[in-house]
Amino acid sequence: MADPQLAPVVIGGGDRDRRFARALIYVGGAILVVAALAAVFAPLLSKWGPTEIDPAGTLATPGGAHLLGTDGNGMDVWSRVLHAARIDLGIAVCAVALAVVVGTLLGLLAGYLGGWVDDVLMRIVDIFQAFPTFILALAVAALLGDGFGNLVLTIAAVNAPAYARLVRAEVRTLREMAYIEAAKTSGASMFGILWRHLLPNSLTPVRVIAPLNCGWAMLTLAGLSFLGLGVTVPTAEWGSMISLGTSDVVAGRWWTSVPPGLALLVCVLGFSLLGEGLQERADAKRR
């Protein structure tokens, strides 16, 4: 027998990655839940309407009647920051959802059918991806004009090609799998193979990328609005609020631009943490 006095040898590590992933998902998720609640209950959380002008004065300092003061037009900053969450979160999430649906559909077809369908679709994707994302968004936004629907279309258009590529690559691997051959030999139709087997299995990477993408979409929207191509005053939107407030900062009036900036930062961070956490969890599972 071995010497009983020898202590057991312990090799550390274990489950750190998994716990880390879970923490990221919880923190990111919590931020987003708070942001969503703020957006939904914005009218209850503020005394003033987002476009209501306080006749008592413009550029009022924070405190008093206005929690975060008023902007150059005499509108309540706190109320506008809350109401802007509806536009920013709404457009970002809708646009990414649309991009996922369209991109996945194109990717499925291109990946499974191959041949000329693949060639044509992928060349179109190439054209989209040949431009820097933001420049492309500027061009599309200028073409379509503003408004909720058009902005969703603009941001979806610049993001969909990435999903098409992602899903196509996934499908090209999956279609060689034994279970796809098994489905074929079981007499499954093309639609059946695409819908029942390839679609559910090719969405794994999409699930990880989509939350991250929502954060980028918000930045794109804010950027467009900052440049005057997205949501315009008087509608409350963080990007346009920052744009309006830039000149105030020089004069020491930080409250018109810093709060919307922070709101944007926190929401993007929430999406990033959530996406990062999902990525980590997927990696931990694979190990």
Partner: peptide, 21 residues
């Protein structure tokens, strides 16, 4: 329907079953 007249049993037992079915 005629394609289903021939059936195959694969080498990789788990890989030949659709993971989300």
């Amino acid at each position: 329907v005629e394609r289903t007249r021939a059936q195959m049993v694969f080498q990789d037992p788990i890989g030949s079953l659709s993971p989300r079915r």
